[in-house]
Measured scan of single mutants.
Amino acid sequence: NLYFQGLKYMVPGARVTRGLDWKWRDQDGSPQGEGTVTGELHNGWIDVTWDAGGSNSYRMGAEGKFDLKLAP
């Protein structure tokens, strides 16, 4: 699974964008943008601060869902 392989790169400072299971509307800005991981992966959740200004926790394994992917 590509998403599980990418988890080791989901570290503080990593750049991310919305992924396969995104369901959080425009939390990442409008139009959709990139963000920066600000915390360690914990119980399948990870913290992100978006360039647009907001921050929140997103699923990276929790509930079998992956809200994020590494930015290109």
Rank of each mutant, 00 (worst) to 15 (best):
A52S: 11
G29C: 07
K65H: 05
D51G: 00
G64Y: 06
A52K: 10
K8W: 10
A62E: 03
A62P: 02
G44Y: 02
D21W: 04
M10W: 13
G64V: 03
G54Y: 10
D26G: 07
Y3W: 14
D21L: 02
R25A: 15
G35Q: 00
D47P: 12
L70E: 04
N56Q: 08
E34W: 14
N43M: 11
W22N: 04
R25F: 14
S55D: 07
T17S: 11
I46K: 00
G64S: 08
G54H: 11
E40P: 13
E34P: 14
E34Q: 13
G39K: 10
L68R: 00
F4G: 14
L70P: 09
D47M: 14
D67P: 01
A14R: 07
A14C: 15
W24P: 07
K65P: 01
V11P: 06
T36W: 06
K8S: 10
V16Q: 00
M60K: 00
G13T: 03
K69I: 12
N1W: 07
M10D: 01
N43T: 06
D47H: 14
D21H: 11
G13Q: 04
G13S: 04
G19P: 03
P31F: 08
V37G: 00
T17P: 02
I46A: 03
A14D: 06
K65V: 04
L20H: 13
Y3N: 15
G53L: 03
Q27C: 08
G54I: 10
F4L: 13
W50N: 00
V11T: 11
V16N: 00
K65Q: 07
P72C: 15
Y58A: 03
K23I: 14
P72A: 12
G33I: 04
G29F: 05
F66D: 01
G19C: 10
Q32F: 13
Y9T: 08
E63W: 08
D51M: 03
M10R: 05
N56D: 09
Y9I: 08
S55I: 12
N56I: 04
V37P: 00
E63M: 09
T49Y: 08
V48D: 00
P72T: 12
G6F: 15
A52C: 15
W45N: 00
R59C: 02
W45F: 05
T17K: 13
K65W: 04
G33M: 09
L70I: 10
G6D: 15
L2Q: 15
R59L: 03
G44L: 03
T49D: 09
S30T: 14
T17I: 14
P31C: 14
E63C: 15
L7E: 08
L70F: 15
Q32W: 11
S55C: 15
G61Q: 02
Y3E: 15
E63K: 08
Q32D: 10
G19F: 06
G6V: 14
W22V: 05
A62F: 14
D67A: 01
V48C: 02
G35E: 00
P31M: 08
N1G: 10
G19D: 05
M10Q: 03
W24Y: 11
G29V: 06
Q5A: 12
E40D: 11
W22I: 05
S57Y: 09
A14I: 10
Q32S: 14
W22A: 05
G39D: 07
G54L: 10
P31W: 07
A62L: 04
W22L: 06
L70K: 05
Y9C: 15
N43Q: 10
V48M: 00
Q27L: 05
G19S: 07
E40L: 13
L41M: 09
R59M: 02
R15I: 03
K8T: 08
S55V: 11
G13H: 05
D28S: 06
K69V: 13
W45E: 00
I46Q: 01
G6P: 08
H42G: 07
L7T: 08
G19Q: 05
W24M: 05
G64A: 07
D51F: 03
A62N: 07
L20G: 11
T49A: 11
Q27P: 06
Y9G: 08
I46R: 00
K23S: 10
M10Y: 14
V16M: 01
I46H: 01
L20W: 12
N56S: 11
L2D: 15
F4H: 13
D28C: 07
G33H: 07
D47F: 13
G6Y: 15
N43W: 09
L68I: 09
Y58P: 01
T17V: 14
E40M: 12
T36S: 08
W50Q: 00
D67V: 02
K69R: 12
T38E: 06
P12N: 11
P72I: 13
D47G: 12
R18P: 08
S30R: 12
F4M: 12
G54E: 10
Q5K: 14
A71E: 07
R25S: 14
D28K: 04
V48L: 01
G35R: 00
S55A: 09
R25E: 14
Y58Q: 04
G61D: 01
D51V: 04
V48Q: 00
G39S: 14
R15K: 09
L68D: 00
D26R: 06
D47A: 13
K8V: 12
E40V: 14
V16W: 02
R59E: 02
